[in-house]
Design a protein around this nucleic acid. Structure first.
Length: 429
RNA sequence: GGAACGGUGGCAGAGCGGACAAAUGCAGCCGCCUUGAAAGCGGCCGGCUCGCAAGGGCCCGGGGGUUCAAAUCCCUCCCGUUCCGCCA
């Protein structure tokens, strides 16, 4: 969440920054938060003054008892008891206002970075690089949607996935399953030089899902295990970000770099019925995520590093791609600045989002309470968090099947993946 | 799932109604001493929050309660350890 001090000190600046997101209700929420914050401080001060008196009187009672002056003790005790009702009432009020403030704050999105481009929606996202590795022309055999191409090869069996689970689940078979696994291996190996591999839980607590910004606003998008108070993770970002929740890091150990392969679970509540064919959208998919906990100074360079790492992995798969920056109107709630990498899929004739890299400033760290201490200095600051998909399997899988499809219907495996596929060079029927 | 015992500062570990933000040790910081270091000596050494400041409030796993006063008593939840049960 955003820092209350930001709008206490300069409400206009915060209002202007949030206005760039183009959602009027956000400004209403902000003004509500500002009013609640003023009220909360008033009540808290009042409550604290009464508490100070009670504490003082209580000390007097103790002292008088020790001195054997029971008359003075009784008097102070009675005086303190008289303050009890006021204290109880004010404390309840203060708690209530604080809770209201928190509820509002949790729903206010992050401030966009000054360099983030203005825009109303995804059609305004500017191209920052590419298209790269784009052939002059696609052959007719590449213009076959991957669901058809894959069915021919027997590597995708969504009908049976639907039978076993529900619609919008996918199932890869044979070389298709190996391809999905190989992509994860590749992404992990390409980043193992700088990132610690983690195998985190894929079910997490409500607090954990709140820290990254997925709750309370987006509860409908996540799978809930209500009986046990747990949620299925929508991305490894969730457990990795909260690994250091409530902890204070040393500046010397930063940036902390983590990566994880995990399955990701999404209800796709807002897009049910869309992209139902093939591998474009599903309730469960595999992804390798890379993430950093950094100081504010380290963050900009890390953002570019994460983008570059994701880009290089896509490039190694010999796929046509481009990089776009997300404009203020299309940014996620927690995002400060973000970039997407899109791969062109000739069979579907569309650009598929295969990686999203974002910088969250201290927005998530504040929710998760991840702080750091500068070397030799007192006090703590909130860390900055950044993360990105090193590789999201299904759409890359689809793009490989479409781009690398040959005239005979077989699919050539990019050289970078062959070591992970027992040397397989081509998937043939 | 059942039983017992626990959860206190960076770590270890006292405290078990009042003088406790909390002994003591270790680690850390500053100074003295020293050619340098170690040892020794002296001092400092948690976080959050309100306030221009003086100063105030909160935090001893979370939440609730009893009391003039709670780390300390009661309830409840969570987590840990050990034993039993079950299990890959």
């Amino acid at each position: 969440m955003i820092d209350v001090r930001l709008f206490r000190n300069d409400a206009d600046r915060v209002r202007a920054a949030l206005a760039r997101r183009g959602k009027p209700d956000i400004i209403e929420q902000l003004d509500r938060a500002i009013a609640l914050d003023v009220r909360a401080r008033e009540i808290s001060t009042e409550r604290d003054n009464i508490r100070a008196k009670v504490n003082e009187l209580s000390k007097k009672v103790g002292q008088a008892r020790r001195d054997g002056d029971s008359a003075a003790a009784d008097e102070a005790q009675a005086a303190s008891r008289a303050l009890g009702d006021d204290e109880t009432r004010l404390a309840a009020q203060a708690d209530e206002v604080h809770e209201q403030l928190r509820e509002v704050l949790l729903r206010i999105p992050n401030l966009p970075h000054p360099d983030a481009p203005d825009g109303a929606g995804d059609h305004d996202n500017p191209l920052v690089k590419g298209p790269l590795q784009m052939p002059a022309e696609f052959a007719a055999h590449q213009r076959v949607p991957h669901w058809d191409a894959a069915a021919e090869l027997g590597i995708l069996d969504n009908d049976r996935a639907t039978k076993i689970a529900a619609s919008m689940f996918t199932m890869q078979r044979g070389a298709g399953a190996a391809l999905a696994r190989a992509l994860c291996q590749l992404a992990l190996d390409r980043n193992a030089d700088a990132f610690e591999e983690v195998r985190p839980p894929t079910m997490v607590s409500t607090a954990t899902l709140t820290a990254t910004g997925h709750l309370p606003k987006f509860a409908d998008d996540a799978y809930a295990i209500e009986r046990d108070g747990l949620w299925m993770i929508p991305t490894a970002e969730v457990p990795l970000t909260s690994m250091y929740a409530g902890e204070i890091l040393d500046e010397a150990q930063m940036p902390l770099r983590l990566m994880a392969y995990t399955p990701c679970y999404r209800r796709e509540a807002g897009s049910a019925g869309r992209d139902t064919r093939g591998m474009l959208r599903s309730h469960e998919f595999d992804k390798v995520e890379i993430l950093a906990l950094a100081t504010p100074e380290q963050a900009p360079a890390l953002l570019h590093e994460l983008v570059e790492r994701a880009e290089k992995t896509i490039a190694s798969l010999e796929l046509p791609y481009r990089i776009i920056e997300i404009c203020t109107g299309d940014m996620g709630q927690s995002h400060h600045r973000s970039f997407d990498i899109e791969v062109y899929a000739p069979g579907c004739d569309s650009w598929l989002e295969v990686s999203s890299v974002s910088w969250f400033s201290d927005y998530q760290a504040r929710r998760a309470d991840i702080r750091f201490r500068r070397t030799g200095q007192k006090g703590t600051e909130f860390a900055n968090t950044l993360n990105g998909s090193a590789l999201a399997v299904p759409r890359v899988w689809a793009a490989i099947v479409e781009n690398h499809r040959q005239a005979d219907g077989s699919v050539v495996i990019p050289a970078a993946l062959r070591p992970y596929m027992r040397g397989l060079e081509r998937i043939a029927p």
